[in-house]
């Protein structure tokens, strides 16, 4: 586990968060409030969703929108509309998390079954983010035991 993960606070803009993700080549990054409490994750899939209409998604009731034929300018315009908005309004609130005392098995099941490639570790009492575990962390640990 990485004890002091890179995070963004909820008031940081979407644009600044995208720049950070691109610079660090992260797929996603935890979003916290001023007190360090975990609010959710914001990543590449969230960015791509901002480029398409909000209603063209399963959450909007459309299981597929293959008929859409927006130009690259339309997609960029839509993304630019949200560039200066707060990232806290767009992060995924239903991110899977682990508690510090959770077992290795539970950690593996979390990563294997979910769409996340890293799992935030959150203190169950305070909700504060205490660390982050990536799939490489788990795999390295597992393979070290086999070696």
């Amino acid at each position: 586990m990485h004890a002091e993960p890179i995070t963004v606070t909820e008031n940081v803009t979407v644009g600044e968060t995208v720049k950070l993700l691109a610079e660090k080549r992260f797929r996603s990054i935890p979003v916290v409030n001023g007190a360090g409490k975990m609010l959710g994750q914001f990543g590449v899939s969230n960015i791509l969703k901002l480029a398409i209409p909000a209603s063209a998604s399963p959450e909007g009731g459309m299981s597929s929108a293959n008929f859409m034929n927006d130009s690259i300018e339309d997609l960029q315009r839509r993304l630019a509309d949200d560039w200066s908005k707060s990232v806290g309004d767009y992060c995924d609130n239903d991110t899977q998390t682990l508690a510090p005392e959770d077992s290795l098995t539970r950690t593996i099941m979390c990563i294997a079954s979910g769409n996340q490639d890293n799992i935030p570790v959150v203190d169950p009492d305070s909700g504060r983010l205490v660390g982050i575990i990536s799939y490489w962390d788990v795999l390295d640990h597992l393979l070290a035991e086999i070696k």
Binding site: P53, S55, A56, G60, G61, M68
Partner: peptide, 14 residues
């Protein structure tokens, strides 16, 4: 309406 409403929202959004 379950099927028409989502595509309506998409059209009006566009």
């Amino acid at each position: 309406v379950l099927l028409i409403a989502p595509v309506t929202l998409l059209i009006t959004e566009e």
